[in-house]
Write a protein that binds this DNA or RNA. Structure first.
Lengths: 252, 252
DNA sequence: GTTGACCCTCACGTGGCGTGATGCTCCACG
DNA sequence: CGTGGAGCATCACGCCACGTGAGGGTCAAC
């Protein structure tokens, strides 16, 4: 069984011209031709085409693809392993970009602006393993984002004002508890933390105590978010984070 | 503070030529120039460049990028949401490709060779947006759909065969009850409906009786789904819907 | 005041196809 | 049997997103 250009093109979702091109540059020449000169692609040809499309999708030039595929020291399993590794890297990079976007959204919601270095750091050299787990964890929870997106889309200016207002009240409550010397595990602090959680839940997305913990950690870890609290009172960011955790413990 | 071409290029990991090109085509012209004609990029310019690189990375042409960024109806938050959604789609596609590679590795280990259809099917679904948009329209932007999509992405061919098999059994049970003249509220029909609900829950998403009702209604309303049942027996779609509702009533 | 890093503007080259133009081949149908 | 239309072939030019010099100005440092 062999296949015509049109059939193969339809199969692989490429144009006939692309197959012609690959033939021209010697990247993929059909195994056979009919007497009339029609190209006939055999099974091994399809195999090779799949490999080509794979590496092409991953950003290799056709020349590089040819080199990779014509490397005599590479058996099928080697290719599969390499493809898998490359995919993993690509996914990781995109996941980090997605995390950066999420961070930018948070920053935007809070009216913080990023520095140039920060803005581009996601495009720079990428070190795998670094934040992998954290990113994966955040990414796994895309459902929360979806929900946020749907809700936020319908907000009016009035809504945003109200959100800001509510946020201010919660912040004030936390700052008061802090100023009064109440520990993070005091009812006042925990209640304010709970109010914060409810605030997120009401306006943005279902915020489980678990997710809330992560958010609290970020308020301390990321100086921009921390600044939001630290400008009110020194040490408040850490205090808020502890109150959030205490509240989460209480809910468990 | 403003930046020279070289600085910006280093920051953003692009060449100076690329910045020149973007200036030439009017995609990104620096906010200022020195007396000597040197380009000086301002903060908003960097902002725009980041957006450009983001959309470019996601496969848009520069013309499209310009259209997206110059759309007056799009505020920063809209862009962030769109970028996040696009990233999610890309990641999803790559994840499916990775799954296909894993499958191929397994097939290789077992000495099985794949059919052409199997080999290209991961490429075949080339434009996830198209199909997804259509489905999303029908399903609504529900959480259940998200969950279903995520889980389904990880299924192997074996899984699908099993799913199809299980589904066939349930369908047969319903058709039998229908053919035997059992009313939708008969134990046979309701039990089959309950099996159907469990089937959904096991393979796709948590399906409450309430959600199940909605699903049943759709089987009647959506001709494509209805066809699935109507080809077995005329009126079966409506019967299934009624059995689902009867079962949900029973569960309440 | 010269050196060397950096900047400018042309302008042609390249990779990966898209898009016809023009003609041959095949087979299904009247 | 022959004919019409889908599909295939080979040129050949076009396009996009830059790469790659050529030829020359600018600027802080030594």
């Amino acid at each position: 069984m062999s296949y015509s250009v049109g059939q193969v093109a339809a199969f692989a979702c490429v144009t006939v011209r692309t197959l012609h091109h690959y033939d021209e540059i010697g990247l993929l020449s059909p195994g056979e031709r009919t007497a009339a000169g029609y190209r006939r692609y055999t099974e091994p040809d399809l195999d090779r085409l799949q490999q080509i499309l794979f590496y092409r999708e991953l950003g290799f030039s056709l020349e590089e693809v040819a080199a990779i595929l014509d490397d005599p020291s590479a058996d099928p399993l080697t290719h599969l392993r390499r493809q898998h590794e490359l995919l993993r890297q690509r996914i990781d990079r995109l996941a980090r970009m997605a995390a950066a976007v999420e961070q930018a959204m948070e920053a935007h919601a809070m009216g913080i602006s990023l520095t140039p270095e920060e803005r581009f750091e996601v495009f720079g050299d990428f070190r795998p393993e670094d934040h992998e787990e954290e990113v994966r964890e955040r990414w796994g929870d895309s459902e929360a984002f979806e929900q946020s997106r749907r809700r936020a889309a319908s907000y009016t200016k009035q809504d945003w004002l109200k959100i800001k207002d509510e946020g201010g009240e919660i912040l004030a409550a936390l700052a008061d508890a802090y100023a009064a010397g109440q520990p993070p595990y005091s009812p006042q602090a925990m209640d304010a933390a709970e109010a914060h959680r409810a605030h997120i839940g009401r306006w943005f997305y279902d915020c489980s105590p678990q997710i809330h913990r992560g958010l609290g950690d970020m308020y301390v870890a990321d100086p921009r978010f921390a600044a939001n609290y630290e400008t009110v009172a020194t040490g408040l960011a850490q205090y808020v984070r502890d109150a959030i955790h205490a509240n989460a413990d209480r809910m468990a």
